[in-house]
């Protein structure tokens, strides 16, 4: 792509992303209001003491006595300044709750993503190389198995095997509680806790990427430039590396970039199973308490991440692949 076009393209993508986010925010607001029960009565219920005066005080405090459009305006203004509301149950701003939990989720999804992409592509490439053989069948069956197994169940089974039966790995949490660790020990401790959840979250996507890369590679292998190379007598290994893999990788990575956002959705289940202290776990806790403000915050946060991932993928793609047409 010509670099001169890049700013315009960038701007276009940003505007689009902003519109999507705005739509999500408005959606969010109306969903909050579709939710039954107003926050005042929830808190009154929880504090164990409810007289009419107390309820009035709470309603006024949360602006629940304002008309709907005023509340929408307040909400929009809030989101612009990254104020995502207040969790009355936890007595903390939703944004700060999310901010605290985000690193854990990014670590988990990042690890799962790297694992899924590398193993998935390797499996797909292997299957494509040995297409039609037993190896291909085994990999295909394996991918299908990962694909058809409920994520949370895989997690539970891994816990059962590695934590309960073998006692090799911790079954929950992100770090050992109350143990004083320093330096490399902290990293190792977290890594030990990370292994099972990342594996669980990654397995499904291993299947996805394996099937995708197998198909893409077979498709590329069918194309003329590969045939030409083969006709020229280029060694098979070199054809695979230089021609097929290289050209198949780009669409795989693009697709993976888009999928990366969806990984965060899956992390709700995995974090629930492994008590991983990320936003997925936060969403589950909020769900149990029906803390809608926090749920909305999680929805907003994950949506923004997806939009961001897409944006980054688009940009990388545009920069890397000169053939991609740039139109916003």
């Amino acid at each position: 792509m010509e670099l001169s076009k890049l700013p315009g393209y960038l701007l276009g993508r940003l505007v689009k992303a902003a519109i999507v986010i705005l739509a999500i925010v408005v959606c969010n607001f109306f969903l909050i209001h579709a939710a039954p029960g107003d926050p005042a009565s929830i808190i009154a219920g929880q504090s164990g003491a409810a007289d009419a005066r107390f309820l009035e005080q709470l309603r006024a405090q949360f602006g629940l006595d304002q008309p709907l459009y005023v509340q929408l305006w307040i909400y929009l203004k809030g989101v612009l300044t990254l104020d995502l509301g207040f969790s009355h149950r936890q007595q903390v701003a939703v944004a700060s709750l999310l901010w605290d939990r985000l690193p854990a989720t990014l670590l988990l999804t990042g690890a799962a993503f790297v694992f899924a992409l590398s193993v998935g592509v390797a499996m797909g490439a292997l299957a494509a190389l040995r297409v039609g053989t037993w190896g291909d069948s085994i990999i295909t069956v394996l991918a299908l198995t990962f694909y058809a197994t409920p994520l949370f169940w895989v997690g539970l089974m891994l816990v059962l095997l590695f934590s309960v039966t073998l006692e090799w790995l911790p079954s929950f949490g992100m770090a050992s509680v109350g143990v004083d660790l320093h330096g490399i020990d902290v990293v190792l401790d977290v890594a030990k806790h990370l292994l099972l959840p990342a594996l669980t979250l990654g397995l499904f996507y291993v299947a996805v990427y394996a099937r995708l890369s197998r198909a893409t590679m077979l498709e590329v292998a069918d194309q003329d430039f590969v045939k030409t190379a083969r006709a020229k007598g280029v060694p098979e290994g070199r054809i695979l590396r230089r021609h097929i893999l290289r050209n198949a990788l780009l669409p795989i990575i693009t697709f993976a970039g888009i999928q990366a956002g969806q990984l965060i959705g899956g992390s709700i289940l995995v974090e629930t199973v492994f008590a991983w202290p990320g936003i997925g776990r936060l969403a589950f806790e909020a769900l149990l308490a029906r803390d809608y403000q926090v749920l909305m915050g999680v929805f907003f946060c994950t949506s923004v991440m997806v939009v961001l991932f897409n944006l980054i993928t688009d940009l990388l793609y545009a920069v890397v692949d000169p053939r991609v047409e740039v139109s916003a």
Binding site: P36, G37, D38, S41, I42, A44, G45, Q46, R290, Y292
Partner: peptide, 9 residues
């Protein structure tokens, strides 16, 4: 199956 708010209300 209801949430805390609905239950209270």
């Amino acid at each position: 199956s209801v949430d805390v708010g609905t239950w209270a209300q």
